[in-house]
Nucleic acid binder design. Structure first.
Lengths: 204, 204
DNA sequence: TATGGTAGAGAACGAACGTTCTGCTGTCAA
DNA sequence: TTGACAGCAGAACGTTCGTTCTCTACCATA
């Protein structure tokens, strides 16, 4: 069953091993070191062979070079594979074995680092929207939002996470939990940002 | 209101500017280049001054050096700030203005890249656990799990996401939706991995 | 007017780096 | 049994890198 295999350079099992070592190194150090250091990482003694390996990994699309010759990782380098028809959170169904798209972790967050902030959620007023206490809300800072968006609004100088709604020409903030009341701001409504993502960590 | 400001080297506004440039560069190239290249990035002409800047950023904890002298980013380099008492997904409460912990995006995923995979969730059998159709399950591949863990199990050669339970000495798979039946595997239960994280993207 | 700190410029130098080239194994098919 | 190729080792070399050191321009303060 190879559905979940990490993408590898085709037709070269050794290179896949070197790629894994490079990925693990990068995960720890967040950079690609010199050929001399890579000799240790790969467990070989020859700088020229390191270069040959990196050239092949480059050709396979896992790394590339900056204009001044430095090796840097590509999106494919960070990819984690998808099973196309995925986990069925219902009754089990067949999983097709073709690899689909890749999901790149930094896609969501690193794109606009200066506009993105992360905020831990407290309370359960949005629980019916699948947003739990302790979840991390990924928020893009901007003051425009559409009705139906989940927004971080500033109400009475405090932050709150709610769905933006409209009622009789006025904006309102709707919780996703019937135990909580709808917020009807007196005066104008200040939007801090819009929810663009959600992250949850389960204790290991 | 400065609750959400990006962390900066204290007492040096210029360094904060250089840090931002370095962060933007890193976001694009995923590496820290040579001093000569950093001259262009920073817009200055002197390598020695670049070194002085990096030394200060290093002292401030945003970058550090590998054993062989290479500059690499630290956790703080990637940090997005937190408001300490966070978004209240209930009634708004006061947000204290002190900066708390930082959340680093790749913390959850890049740690053990060779063991981690991401799987899109289909269906709503785990909806009471806040896991929706279309969410991305972050799964650590291993075949040991504890009762109570949410696991990706292989049942009849198919993958399914359920809570691991025990009933009369036998392992069972419990959905988080009363409309779905408990799965009682005949024979042994094969665990593919354990859910360690969840990612949801909202359409922009 | 003198002083001291900040923000850089620029040269010099040895060490490290990437590149290229040649050579050496083991393996496997012809 | 030969030869071809994959998988390295190791030396040589010119370039680039990081480091250190000296010097300068520009404030602000005393």
């Amino acid at each position: 069953m190879t559905v979940f295999d990490t993408p590898t350079p085709e037709s070269n099992p050794k290179d896949a091993e070197y790629l894994a070592k490079l990925q693990d190194y990068y995960a720890e150090w967040k950079s690609i070191p010199s050929y001399a250091s890579l000799c240790e990482v790969f467990g070989i003694a020859s700088k020229s062979w390191v270069k040959a390996i990196l050239d092949r990994l480059g050709k396979a699309g896992f790394i590339e070079r900056t204009p001044d010759g430095m090796w840097i990782p590509t999106r494919q380098f960070f990819a984690r594979p998808f099973a196309e028809s995925s986990v069925q959170a219902g009754m089990p169904v067949s999983v097709t074995a073709t690899q689909g798209d890749y999901f790149v972790i930094d896609e969501m967050l690193i794109d606009t680092p200066s506009l993105t902030t992360m905020i831990p959620v407290k309370g359960d007023s949005m629980i019916d929207a699948g947003i739990h206490d302790g979840d991390i809300a990924v928020v893009e800072k901007r003051n425009l939002a559409n009705v139906g968006d989940i927004v971080v609004a500033i109400v009475d100088n405090d932050f709150t996470l709610k769905t933006l709604g409209k009622e009789g020409g006025k904006f309102i903030l709707r919780p996703a939990n019937s135990a909580y009341p709808v917020i009807r701001p007196h005066g104008s409504l200040e939007i801090f940002g819009v929810l663009v993502g959600l992250i949850r960590k389960y204790r290991k």
